[in-house]
């Protein structure tokens, strides 16, 4: 081994030892300049090759190359180690408290009544029903007389009515006047429609009673429409609205514009029928009134009741929303208290 080779071997040992102690990228750069830079012993060895005797040149050249490669690869390893360590320090430094609250984003929402209304409309749309709307300020004739309630008919008591200062004009007490409107428009075509809208009743405003509320009327008119069709359609509706296993029942009721008339109950979705405050211990919730369209109403609508039959149903959006979310005060809906609305 030539002196030169020995020197290089020593240089390699020293350099590698020095590298071991380096902890920073700056130190590494200093090391690189010192041991792999132009004036480093290894590089110097290359440039000094020409000064060596010819026979030594290949030996020293080879040795310098070996040392250079060793230093370079040690440098690469060290460099990667330092980069990793640096990254880890950075990541540690950048750590945040992820439990701090997120940046506030204001979300828009539909009013809970409009949410329920949409769901109901969508269910009926899926079942092939069309949507029809009619005025909220109505005539006495459309609200009562054409619905088989001539003046002083006892059934008029079922609706406490707001009258206007114009004779024969009132605030509709139900969506049923729309039945006459749509029938007169469509007769003698058959009808499969729902009639959503706001209705008004003269009540005291309390936690349990409202003066304005949203109803959805269902109307089917055609040839050969039966009570069984009504039962099937409304049972399907209930299954779509309350889940396919929701039990329902129809029991007799009275509406002047239908005969036979019925009310549909659905098994209480709060207690599953066991009995609770919401269903008042009965296990049933009343969800809609319905019945076969009264012959007089068909006639007023322009259909021959000998030939045509139909069924109608009406449900309260407010009441079902109230039950669904166990709202304790029906006035919350139209007070529009943001603290209430934000919950939906």
């Amino acid at each position: 081994m030539t002196d030169r080779e020995t020197q290089l071997e020593n240089e390699k040992k020293e350099a590698l030892a020095a590298l071991d102690d380096i902890r920073t990228t700056e130190g590494l750069e200093t090391w690189r300049i010192a041991h792999l830079g132009k004036s480093s012993p290894v590089m110097q060895a290359f440039s000094d090759l020409g000064k060596l005797p010819v026979e030594e040149r290949p030996l020293v050249g080879r040795a310098a190359n070996t040392v250079k490669q060793a230093l370079e690869s040690a440098y690469a390893v060290k460099s990667e180690q330092l980069r990793q360590a640096e990254l880890e320090r950075t990541l540690t430094r950048e750590r945040i408290d992820v439990t701090l609250p997120g940046r506030a984003v204001q979300r828009g929402r539909l009013h809970p009544l409009n949410q329920t209304l949409r769901e109901v409309c969508q269910i009926f749309r899926d079942m092939g029903f069309q949507i029809y709307r009619s005025p909220e300020v109505e005539t006495d004739d459309f609200n009562f007389t054409y619905l088989n309630m001539p003046p002083y008919h006892p059934a008029r008591d079922m609706w406490d009515t707001f009258y206007t200062d114009k004779d024969g004009v009132l605030l509709r007490t139900h969506t049923s006047p729309g039945q006459i409107h749509i029938m007169r428009e469509r007769a003698p075509e058959h009808i499969r429609a729902i009639l959503p809208g706001t209705t008004m009743r003269y009540e005291q405003l309390t936690a349990r009673s409202e003066i304005e509320f949203i109803q959805v009327e269902v109307l089917v008119v055609g040839k050969g429409i039966t009570f069984a069709d009504m039962k099937g359609t409304l049972t399907d509706f209930a299954a779509r609205a309350f889940g396919k296993d929701a039990r329902t029942r129809l029991r007799p009721s009275y509406f002047p514009f239908t005969e036979p008339s019925a009310e549909m109950d659905v098994e209480c979705f709060v207690c599953g029928g066991e009995g609770c405050n919401v269903c008042k211990g009965t296990g049933w919730l009343e969800i809609l009134g319905c019945g076969m369209v009264h012959p007089t109403v068909l006639e007023y609508g322009g259909y021959d009741p000998q030939e045509f039959s139909g069924f109608a149903a009406g449900m309260g959006i407010d009441r079902s929303t109230l039950m669904r979310y166990r709202v304790d005060d029906i006035r919350h809906f139209r007070n529009n208290d943001i603290r209430f609305l934000e919950q939906f």
């Binding site: 499969r192 089917v220 429409i225 009570f227 069984a228 039962k231 099937g232 036979p260």
Partner: peptide
């Protein structure tokens, strides 16, 4: 009809799906 159905029992009347064809579309 109501008297008969009422005493016969609404629960005994079958449930059927509407079999009549859909009315012509009317859009709102």
């Amino acid at each position: 009809m109501e008297e008969i159905a009422r005493i016969y029992g609404y629960e005994r009347i079958p449930s059927k799906r509407l079999a009549v064809e859909l009315p012509a579309p009317v859009f709102d």
